[in-house]
Amino acid sequence: MSIGVTKMQILSLYKSLMRESQKFSNYNFRSYAVRRVRDAFKDSKTLSDPKLIKQELSFAKANLNIIRRQVIIGDMYKTDKLVIENLQ
């Protein structure tokens, strides 16, 4: 890990992204967000260029804010659950 961005920072960001993504009331948005966050972090695992890491980190932070806002909006206009959710 480079100087400036610690492993702890990345891990805590990943954790909060996952936690917030789970809060989407819409089944499809929720599944997508969780899948996308996981895959994005997996893809960037091999990044070594500190500049790129910083860039990705700020992108992730911006997305965390989007997710937080959109979870609230989604909560205001939620619908009945999907067929597939009622099965589980």
Partner: peptide, 23 residues
Amino acid sequence: EEVGRPLYFDAQATTPVDPRVLD
């Protein structure tokens, strides 16, 4: 016997607005 909203499998007709787009 199943209850709930139907699953969406008609992406050629239209797609939902992405939360990032709405944002």
